[in-house]
């Protein structure tokens, strides 16, 4: 009977958990390759130097079109992030090209001022309509949450799927979005001969439908790294994706650190309670 029960329990846990993430698969989706990230898995943490390089890529390339409105300049200083020195960020904010609309002032007019530490990292457009108007109708999305708002899924038969999912849960896999963005940044190519590409669009294998309005943003050498990291598209992509992953989940480092304390505490307590329970039931057959 006991065996039966544990079997039920196990299969139900597996099954219910299984159902969760089958959701977003789309037929005909390009398989997205999984990358190695410093922040992946149940022990992974962000690499400060990589986040700093990633911010440099964002600032010099992405920020031309994309905002980062849910991240404030002060966040660039806080622990668990790129941890730039505060003075450097103050200076960065003061010279940020996209100013903050504030007001009304004493004359009742709105005015633009340079951002302070507490202000968001704004993109070049004041609203979506302005963005569309200057981008031929395409909307460059805000990047604050992009690493969470995208996902990638593995295709597998229904009987394999539960095991893949169990593996992902046990490995604390949360990098579906990161892997997708990396693929998007690196899988630009010429369209196959039989593919009809709309004018002004670019062929990208990772993008659903394969045609994207964003021109290939990165090429070797566009950003000059200071720390000797090779200036290649591959490095840029990894770095900027790491940065965006932090932007979307700034508490990751703290979350995993506290997570381990909680899990270890729970395991020890469960063990103690189990032994205590055995003592209590020692003389009672059940």
């Amino acid at each position: 009977m006991k065996k039966h029960l544990s079997l039920t329990l196990l299969s139900m846990v597996a099954a219910t958990v299984a159902m969760g993430s089958l959701s977003a698969e789309e037929a005909g989706h390009q398989e997205i390759e999984r990358q190695k990230w410093s922040f992946s898995g149940f022990t992974g943490q962000f690499d400060k130097a990589q986040l700093q390089r990633g911010f440099q890529v964002y600032k010099e390339v992405c920020a031309a079109c994309h905002g980062l409105k849910r991240v404030a300049f002060r966040n660039l200083v806080q622990p668990g992030g790129p941890e730039f020195p505060e003075d450097a960020v103050k200076e960065l904010a003061a010279t940020w090209p996209n100013q903050i609309t504030d007001g009304p002032n004493d004359e009742g007019k709105m005015f633009e001022r340079p951002p302070l530490l507490s202000d968001p990292i704004r993109g070049p457009y004041h609203n979506d309509n302005e963005a569309r108007a200057s981008q031929n109708g395409a909307l460059p999305p805000d990047l604050s949450l992009i690493a969470r708002a995208r996902d990638s899924h593995r295709e597998a038969s229904w009987y394999i799927h539960p095991f893949l999912m169990l593996g992902d849960i046990l490995n604390a896999y949360q990098e579906g979005g990161a892997n997708y963005i990396y693929a998007l940044l690196t899988e630009y190519s010429d369209a196959p001969a039989d593919y009809k590409l709309t004018d002004g669009k670019y062929y990208n294998k990772a993008f659903p439908g394969h045609q994207i309005a964003m021109p290939p943003p990165l090429s070797d050498g566009v950003v000059a790294y200071q720390d000797g990291t090779p200036s290649t598209v591959d490095h840029y992509s990894h770095d900027v994706v790491a940065f965006l992953s932090w932007a979307a989940d700034p508490s990751l480092d703290q979350r995993k650190r506290i997570g381990w304390q909680v899990i270890l505490y729970l395991i020890v307590t469960t063990g103690l309670l189990y032994l205590g329970k055995k003592r209590i039931w020692k003389n009672i057959k059940h």
Binding site: I169, R255, V262, L266, I267
Partner: peptide, 27 residues
């Protein structure tokens, strides 16, 4: 004992795969 064993699973999801049961589109 049952409760704490269950809490291990709970904590695992809450701290290590908090978005696994959700959906990317909700971001």
């Amino acid at each position: 004992v049952g409760l704490f064993a269950f809490l291990i699973l709970f904590a695992w999801f809450a701290f290590f795969v908090p978005d696994y049961l959700g959906h990317a589109d909700n971001y």
